[in-house]
């Protein structure tokens, strides 16, 4: 048991050292890489490992006769989580989300230290010692807090009230609700029921299963399926339309949305926010094709009132592309990213 806990404690110690290195910028944040596709679980796994490590560390120090008081365990664990979120995860997490996570972890720490009376007493002890002030040192500390706490609270209040020159925070709607129908080149399309006319099988009939079977493979390689190369001269039907959509994409869209469709085109960083990343599972993979059709046709300027603040420079492509060209480019986007359009059946 001791040997096992020592190994676990080693993990905890390594975690602390790694994080300290990242904070002091000795160790780059990406030393242990967050692997694309596995990142969400990787973070949870890392945190689980650290919790186990800290349990081991606490156990080992306890057996060595140097137990860490519960109060300091709680403070240290909460600080670790806050620092982990700030320095380990890259790109930086916006403050609003870190504040949410920080509050939840504070609640978690409280639940842990007060789950039973014994732990709660242990946790409270240092606080009670200072409040009771039975020794000279505690008395001094109590006076210190009496002065420091109001200053601290005053400082926070001042900081939150003082006028700032930063740009205001925006609550941008990522997926504005589409209208029930949209009119493009004189024809009305009902978004709930419209289908891509080029998503067809070899017989020329609408067939999503057929097209889904021919998209690139999801994952890191994004490989084309065998015998499903749109750039094959003999490609017909769906694959031919994908190729035509690709040509339209590279003539019009890739400057912003990028040649890998990840929103990092040549001009992307001239915009804020940068253009949509189609490889993200939160964009086109979540939407119906007809939604994409509406967004391409109408662009940023055509967003509804409830889509405010619009913050989109996407041109209304109906002024530059035909209806068929818009449908084809959508076909290409799904094919290239390896996603299926959302359906409601």
């Amino acid at each position: 048991m001791k040997a096992f806990m020592s190994v676990v404690a080693l993990i905890g110690a390594m975690g602390i050292l790694l994080l300290a290195g990242m904070i002091l910028e000795i160790v780059p944040s990406n030393t242990v890489r967050l692997v694309e596709g596995y990142m969400p679980m990787q973070i949870l796994f890392e945190l689980s490992l650290f919790v186990a490590g800290f349990t081991g560390l606490s156990y080992v120090l306890g057996t060595m006769g140097m137990p860490i008081p519960r109060f300091w365990q709680a403070i240290a664990f909460w600080s670790f989580i806050l620092l982990y979120l700030k320095f380990r995860v890259y790109p930086p997490i916006p403050f609003s989300v870190r504040a949410m996570y920080g509050t939840v972890s504070l609640v978690a720490v409280f639940m842990w230290v007060s789950a039973n009376e014994e732990d709660w007493k242990k946790f409270k002890q240092p606080i009670m010692n200072i409040l009771d002030a039975q020794t000279g040192a505690n008395k001094m500390l109590r006076y210190g807090y009496l002065v420091l706490l109001p200053i601290l609270i005053g400082g926070f209040s001042y900081n939150s009230m003082v006028p700032k020159s930063e740009e205001p925070i925006e609550l941008r709607t990522v997926h504005p609700a589409p209208p029930a129908s949209t009119k493009v080149h004189g024809k009305t399309y009902t978004l709930q029921t419209s289908q891509n006319p080029f998503r067809v099988n070899a017989e020329g009939k609408y067939d999503q299963e057929y097209s889904n079977a021919n998209i690139v493979e999801q994952g890191m390689g994004r490989l084309m399926k065998p015998n499903a190369n749109p750039w094959d001269k003999d490609a017909q039907g769906y694959l031919k339309y994908v190729r035509e959509g690709g040509e339209i994409f590279f003539q019009n869209c890739h400057f912003c949305h990028g040649d890998n469709l990840n929103g990092r085109g040549l001009h992307a960083f001239a915009f804020n926010p940068i253009p949509a990343n189609f490889t993200d599972p939160g964009t086109i993979a979540q939407l119906q094709e007809s939604f994409i059709f509406w967004r391409i046709a109408k662009g940023g300027i055509g967003l509804p009132n409830e889509g405010f603040p619009w913050a989109s420079v996407m041109p209304p492509w109906e002024q530059h592309l035909t209806v068929d060209e818009i449908w084809k480019v959508i076909l290409f986007e799904y094919w290239h990213t390896g996603y299926y359009p959302r359906t409601w059946d």
């Binding site: 694309e36 973070i43 995860v89 930086p92 930063e166 925070i169």
Partner: peptide
Amino acid sequence: VMSPAELKAMGGQQHPV
């Protein structure tokens, strides 16, 4: 919810992780 500066630092509307 984020400031434009945070949005830029993040490199897109969605955080990759």
